[in-house]
């Protein structure tokens, strides 16, 4: 209960420099921040024309291992991406036909992160992972106490996704 309460506070505080405290204190807070980031990436990314119906919900898929749990569902509640509602699905494997717009690749014995990335390499899916694999567009990175991210522009191009320069400006070097 205390964990959930703190998570709730963390979610409410995502607009602030919450990550600094959250990441250092507890691992689950890190995921609360990442959960918040996950749907917000969508606001700065354009999918190719005709990939989805304009009013249809944006599909966020958690593929394989799910580190968020209900935190993600709460985080997206009432949120929109370019005016579209958000739906969260959980899959064990991903394919181009899965209908995912944003996919968090958690990796599992059934489908590793690399395999999942390969599976939707050219599909218009914004792939997000904790590790860098070919085809992963956004990689979460920890910088100091804060959650940051790296954007692989080549992977985005392969997926025919246009990433806003505003977002690109926030991209950090994964190696540093």
């Amino acid at each position: 209960m205390t964990v959930i309460g703190r998570l709730a506070i963390a979610v409410a505080a995502t607009f602030a420099g919450l990550a600094e405290r959250a990441a250092g204190e507890e691992g689950s807070l890190e995921y609360a921040v990442k959960a918040a980031f996950l749907h917000r990436f969508g606001s700065f990314v354009s999918w190719p024309e005709g990939s989805a119906a304009p009013r249809a919900p944006v599909q966020i898929c958690v593929v394989g291992r799910d580190p968020f749990g209900p935190t993600l569902d709460r985080a997206v509640q009432g949120q929109t991406i370019n005016g579209r509602p958000i739906a969260v699905r959980r899959l064990s494997v991903i394919s181009p036909g899965s209908g995912c717009d944003i996919a968090y690749l958690g990796g599992s014995p059934a489908q590793s992160v690399a395999a999942a990335a390969r599976a939707v390499l050219t599909a218009p899916v914004l792939t997000v992972a904790e590790v860098h694999e070919p085809g992963v567009v956004i990689q979460f990175v920890l910088r100091g106490n804060r959650v940051r991210f790296h954007i692989d522009r080549r992977a985005a191009e392969q997926s025919r996704l246009t990433v806003s320069s505003k977002l690109l400006n926030l991209s950090v070097d994964p190696g540093a």
């Binding site: 995502t14 607009f15 919450l18 606001s43 700065f44 940051r148 991210f149 400006n169 926030l170």
Partner: peptide, 14 residues
Amino acid sequence: ATVEPAVVFADAIA
């Protein structure tokens, strides 16, 4: 307008 993503992703440096 320009600072929006920095606020969204709590990026104080940016």
